[in-house]
């Protein structure tokens, strides 16, 4: 019995909790991608760097707040700086729309041109971030480190294995929960949210009903910029901030949006967790986990790790390819790219 409990705790500590936190971050990112896709009708490659851009502002404001001694201990100061980062991400999104995307929208350019244009915007944002804050890792987390500590957990339960829950992980899950509920309420119940769904569903009919397309586009960017910054900041607090890592996040985020069904918000959330848990479960070494469960004579000699962690991006790729081949509409029947 104790063996099973130990195995469960071990699994929770190394797979369940990190997977939940990472999945939440991907879900927030994928929601932004899916929203822009359903309103502006293109896959926004600049989303990862938009996350980096917003997070960079959060970091700069956090450092400034720390330097003048403002904080909300035990919570990280970054939460105070979050609204400023969101404002910066919204501002650059709206500027890029006004000076770049709007031109192609008026010309009714095909989606593939939008995609290429968004790659250009991606390089621009990427460059801005590297010029302003540099390409290196940045530390900005402060406040308490853990909600549950390994040693305290062991003492309280008397088990061999300990469970740790980092504050950043707890925060990520809680914030995602609140943000997702707020977003779904907005899309389902509010007048503007319904107009956005209508515009995404049937653009011509929405125009006939009097929906203002410019307003819908602005609201979409405001939400995408906010979500990107929240996702980026939570990821940065949980792991670390490095511009290149955020660029790389684009792949699992796209995989998440497509697995769930692009253009479908519920799909983006589910997709986020599917991708995250796939990555974590195939790169986890199950040796210790199995030792607790199987008789001694069956103990594995290898690590029982399906893929080494260096290959975690391959997981997203494989999911992406399989979904596009087998079920291009994704789990929730979104649109086909």
């Amino acid at each position: 019995m104790e063996g099973i409990l130990n195995a469960v705790v071990l699994f929770s500590n190394f797979v369940l909790i990190p997977g939940m936190a990472y999945g939440s971050q991907l879900a927030l990112g994928a929601l932004g991608v899916t929203l822009i896709y359903s309103i502006l009708r293109f896959a926004n490659f600049a989303h990862g760097d938009l996350m980096a851009f917003g997070t960079m502002f959060v970091i700069l404001i956090t450092w400034w707040l720390q330097s003048i001694g403002v904080g909300i201990d035990p919570l990280p100061t970054a939460l105070l700086a979050l609204p400023f980062g969101m404002a910066a991400a919204i501002a650059i999104s709206l500027l890029s729309d006004r000076f770049v995307y709007r031109f192609y929208r008026r010309n009714k350019s095909p989606a593939v041109i939008f995609v290429i244009v968004s790659i250009g915007v991606m390089f621009l944002m990427n460059g801005l971030v590297r010029v302003i804050i540099g390409p290196n890792d940045q530390e900005f987390g402060d406040g308490a480190r853990f909600l549950i500590k390994v040693r305290e957990f062991k003492e309280a339960t008397g088990l061999n294995e300990g469970l740790a829950l980092k504050l950043s992980q707890g925060l990520t899950i809680a914030v995602t929960f609140v943000v997702v509920i707020a977003l779904f309420w907005f899309l389902q119940k509010s007048r503007t949210g319904k107009a956005m769904r209508a515009y995404s569903d049937n653009e011509d009919l929405a125009l006939l009903s009097g929906v203002n397309p410019d307003k819908v586009v602005i609201v979409a960017w405001v939400i995408a910029g906010s979500l990107a910054t929240i996702a980026g900041t939570l990821y940065g607090l949980d792991k670390s901030f490095k511009p290149f890592t955020y660029f790389q996040l684009l792949l699992p985020i796209f995989a998440a949006a497509i697995v769930g069904g692009i253009g479908h918000p519920v799909g983006a959330v589910v997709g986020g967790y599917v991708v995250a848990f796939s990555e974590v479960t195939v790169t986890y070494a199950y040796k210790k986990f199995l030792i607790y469960l199987v008789p001694e004579s069956w103990e594995p000699e290898s690590l029982v790790q399906l893929l080494s962690t260096e290959y975690k991006f391959a997981v997203s790729f494989v999911i992406l390819v399989v979904v596009l081949l087998v079920r291009p509409t994704g789990i929730f029947k979104g649109k086909v790219l």
Binding site: R191, K194, A195, R197, A198, D201, N202, G210
Partner: peptide, 19 residues
């Protein structure tokens, strides 16, 4: 394409009254 296929009947009517 004269309805919002993904929205409920009631939401379709609400969208008609959007203005």
């Amino acid at each position: 394409n004269n309805v919002f296929a993904g929205m409920t009947v009631e939401e379709n009517l609400e969208m008609g009254a959007y203005l």
